[in-house]
Lab assay of single mutants.
Amino acid sequence: TIEDAIKKLLKLAQKGQPYTFGDFTVTSEEEAKKLAKWLKKQL
């Protein structure tokens, strides 16, 4: 689910690992949080 993807994304971001989700490449926890907010709006 999208919720699971968001959780995984935040965990990876906390470890400092870049994470690619579709067109987004997230390289920081701050970016992960922005992406998570955006994804929730898409639901």
Rank of each mutant, 00 (worst) to 15 (best):
K11H: 12
L39C: 15
K41F: 06
L10Y: 04
S28N: 09
A36H: 06
T20F: 14
I2K: 01
D4K: 10
S28E: 03
V26R: 01
Y19K: 07
K40N: 07
S28F: 14
S28V: 07
W38R: 02
A32D: 01
E30C: 08
K40T: 11
G16V: 11
D4M: 09
T25S: 04
E31G: 05
K7G: 03
I2E: 01
K33I: 14
G16P: 02
K15Q: 11
F21T: 04
L43S: 03
F24R: 00
L39G: 00
E31R: 02
Q14R: 03
K7S: 05
Q17K: 07
E29F: 14
K33A: 06
I6M: 04
L12N: 07
G16L: 12
W38S: 03
L12P: 02
Q42C: 15
Q14A: 14
T20C: 15
Q14Y: 11
E29Y: 14
F21C: 15
E3C: 15
T25P: 04
W38Y: 05
K8V: 14
V26I: 13
L12K: 04
K7L: 11
Q17W: 15
T25R: 03
K33W: 10
K15N: 10
T25Y: 12
K7M: 06
T27H: 03
Q14C: 15
G16H: 07
D23A: 10
K34R: 08
I2C: 12
T20P: 14
K37S: 09
F24A: 02
T20M: 09
A5N: 02
K41P: 01
A36M: 09
I2S: 01
D4S: 08
E3P: 07
L9E: 00
K34T: 05
L39I: 05
K37I: 12
E31L: 14
F21E: 06
D4V: 04
K11W: 13
D23G: 10
T27V: 12
T1Y: 10
E3T: 05
K37F: 07
K15M: 13
L9F: 10
F24M: 02
L39M: 03
W38T: 01
K15A: 10
K8W: 13
D4Y: 04
T27G: 04
T27W: 10
K34F: 06
A5S: 03
L43F: 05
I2D: 01
T20L: 14
L12C: 15
V26P: 02
G16W: 12
A5T: 11
L10T: 02
L10D: 01
K7Q: 07
K40H: 14
A36T: 05
F24G: 01
L35P: 00
L35Y: 01
S28Q: 02
L10E: 03
D23S: 10
E29T: 09
A32V: 07
K33P: 00
V26C: 15
K33E: 08
K37G: 06
Q17F: 15
K41C: 10
L9N: 01
I6K: 00
L35A: 01
E31W: 15
L39Q: 00
Q17E: 14
S28A: 04
L10V: 06
L12V: 08
T1V: 09
K8G: 04
A32Q: 02
A32K: 03
Y19M: 09
Q42H: 05
E30Q: 08
L43E: 05
I2F: 09
G22K: 02
G16E: 06
F21I: 05
F24H: 02
A36G: 02
L39W: 04
A5D: 02
Q17M: 15
V26S: 01
L9W: 03
K40L: 14
E3Q: 13
K40S: 13
L9P: 00
K11P: 01
P18G: 12
T20Q: 11
K11T: 09
G22F: 14
T25W: 07
E29S: 04
G22A: 06
A5R: 06
E29H: 10
D4Q: 09
L9R: 00
K40Q: 14
K37T: 09
T1N: 07
K37H: 10
L12A: 10
T20I: 12
Y19L: 14
P18N: 08
F24I: 10
K40Y: 14
T20G: 07
T1L: 13
I6G: 00
A36L: 15
Q14E: 11
F21M: 04
E31Y: 11
E29R: 07
T20H: 08
K41G: 06
T25M: 08
F24W: 12
V26L: 04
L35T: 00
W38M: 04
Q14G: 11
L43Q: 06
D23H: 05
K15C: 05
